[in-house]
Design a protein around this nucleic acid. Structure first.
Lengths: 189, 189
DNA sequence: ACCTGAACACCGTTCAAGT
DNA sequence: ACCTGAACACCGTTCAAGT
């Protein structure tokens, strides 16, 4: 039985969880599968597209955000954060793939479309969505970066509870978005 | 005259601007300076600390945010964005260094301290500051990632004006922050 | 003090050749 | 169709030895 893309991704995810993104090399994946490095290039064009597929695996199919005028944003943002934090360096991986524009559909698109369907004009929906997703990514990146530097010894004081800070920040975003919904145009000069 | 840290950083910044972060290797910096790769390790412990110093160079000394109840956040966020965009892959560099916690003082700390001095409780100031800085980083990362993929040919449609989207998002943040200032505690459940 | 020379242990990627 | 073997052009880092 020959190698499949799914097997490669499973192996890659295991290496990611155990050793982190910096140690996730094509050669290491190949070794874990008992195969030559070149074999991977039959199934993926290059490392970038393998990482893109892996990011898709980490994110899964995100839910459609609902109740956007109520607490729907907080729930959706929390779900996104949980998925990013579920794997070592998940936020870094998704950020990198997102920056390369290889994630389809991107979380930004999903939320932006939902906001548009809820009545926000396209530019506002795009900006609001970017705001939410970039914060969640930055927040998760920060947490996982902290975990990494804490493991390395040189970590500062623990600081405030990150879950609390997350909830507060999302609440602040919801206030802004409610204004956008309630009084369209009031945020533009 | 012997090599100085400043010369190394100047050379590194030139390589960053011309070839990007992916091509910024210790060996390439050394070659540009007409020196052996090992020579750099007399001046910097490792690549990470060189990148940290380079990120400091890119950011410079950020201004103290002022008029936090008015448009001060927008001005400060715009300044941060401009500095990130002033060098190729500036946002990616700063994000990476920030995630490693090697940036002192970090932009998050600067804004958080200003928000505290303006009257916000520590947790709220930290969360609000993280919100602003993570958005600016994500936004800039996105713009520079788009520029990169556009140069590579495979770019989607141009989309809405990024400056407009930035202004809208920051305005939304200011609405939320004004609520935090005006009616403290109203964002917490 | 500051740098060279040379090595060590890695990378991603390609591609003829095998099966 | 799918993989091996072997190479190419790179990395970051270390460290004796030179000056």
């Amino acid at each position: 039985m020959s190698l499949t893309c799914a097997e490669i991704l499973t192996s890659a995810l295991a290496i990611l969880d155990e050793f982190g993104l910096a140690d996730l090399s094509m050669r290491r994946i190949a070794t874990a599968l008992g195969v030559q490095p070149g074999a991977l290039y039959w199934h993926f064009d290059n490392k970038q597209s393998l990482l893109a597929a892996l990011a898709g695996e980490v994110l899964g199919t995100l839910p459609e955000p609902g109740d956007l005028r109520g607490g729907g944003i907080a729930i959706w943002a929390g779900e996104l954060r949980d998925r990013l934090l579920a794997h070592r360096d998940g936020a870094e991986l998704v950020s990198a793939v997102l920056a390369m524009r290889l994630l389809d559909p991107s979380p930004v698109d999903i939320l932006a479309n939902a906001l548009m369907r809820a009545g926000l004009p396209p530019t506002d929906a795009g900006a609001g969505s970017a705001l939410v997703v970039h914060f969640v990514l930055g927040h998760s990146l920060d947490r996982q970066g902290y975990a990494q530097s804490a493991q390395l010894g040189a970590a500062g004081p623990p600081g405030p509870d990150p879950d609390e800070a997350f909830a507060y920040a999302v609440a602040l975003l919801e206030v802004g978005l409610r204004t956008a919904f309630g009084d369209q145009g009031s945020l533009r000069q």
